[in-house]
């Protein structure tokens, strides 16, 4: 929809153009920002004009630009030793949004919107990816994606900061993974999304999203027993409550998925 309060859109071409302030927001793909009225927003700084390469491979990471579209992420070719690569498509398919939205929506935008069912948050949390944050005066800091999303519509971004990139450790892509998801309707908004990851060093992590207001990670130095996993799940509070699923249902399916994943990766 037209954002009737917006008086100016600046397309950022260099880092110095990224100046946010009162009423001025960073714009990624725009598929969420333009989907509802934005009272108080008077200006937008379009980050897609910065021309960041969608993905860059370094020695030990896959660096995904915040402006990489969901479509481009699904087209990143797999390496032979990346069993976790299949999560890219599984998570994109977990979005409520159709493939047409993937053509415009960005990975960074999905994470920064901080919705419990944001499947890019699921993906990047499960892969222990790091959020690279740019602040004013050319400052830069890093925080795990699982901590970057702090709650429903709440992130760790401070005034003037933007999400620049997500660094996915290559080691995480080399992990074995298991994936479970459910929604109240077949192609609906995720009610629970659970990803298990068994790394080469034997460590085991279960990442829960959609069922909780923010990503929850259960970490084990080695594959847990059923009892150990159950005990860790007991500590989760609260379970998310909205029209897309009751908290007790989300807890029940999450517990089931976690145990299935434990057995699958054993």
């Amino acid at each position: 929809m037209d954002l009737i309060g917006v008086d100016e859109i600046r397309v950022a071409r260099t880092r110095d153009d990224i100046v946010l302030g009162e009423g001025v927001r960073a714009l990624g793909g725009g598929t969420w920002l333009f989907s509802e009225p934005q009272p108080g927003v008077t200006g937008l700084v379009d980050l897609t004009g910065l021309g960041w390469p969608a993905v860059v491979r370094t020695d030990d990471a896959l660096v995904v630009a915040a402006t990489c579209t969901i479509r481009d992420l699904t087209r990143v070719p797999a390496e032979p030793d990346w069993p976790a690569h299949r999560l890219f498509r599984l998570c994109a398919d977990s979005l409520l949004a159709s493939f047409k939205i993937w053509n415009v929506a960005t990975v960074g935008g999905n994470i920064a919107t901080a919705l419990p069912a944001g499947a890019m948050t699921s993906l990047m949390s499960a892969l222990d990816a790091t959020a690279v944050i740019w602040g004013p005066e050319h400052t830069e800091r890093r925080i795990p994606v699982a901590e970057f999303v702090r709650g429903v519509r709440s992130t760790d971004l401070r005034a003037g900061e933007i999400l620049r990139a997500i660094e996915v450790p290559s080691a995480a892509l080399r992990s074995r993974v298991a994936f479970r998801r459910i929604a109240l309707s077949n192609l609906g908004r995720s009610g629970s999304l659970v990803i298990g990851r068994a790394a080469g060093d034997g460590s085991f992590v279960v990442t829960i999203t959609a069922a909780t207001p923010r990503p929850i990670q259960l970490r084990f130095t080695a594959a847990p027993t059923a009892g150990e996993l159950e005990h860790a799940l007991d500590g989760i509070d609260p379970w998310y409550d909205d029209p897309h699923g009751a908290p007790d249902w989300r807890e029940a399916v999450t517990r089931l998925f976690a145990e299935e994943i434990r057995e699958e990766l054993a």
Partner: peptide
């Protein structure tokens, strides 16, 4: 294909 109602 895109949804033109949310395409800036």
């Amino acid at each position: 294909p895109v949804h033109s109602c949310i395409y800036p």
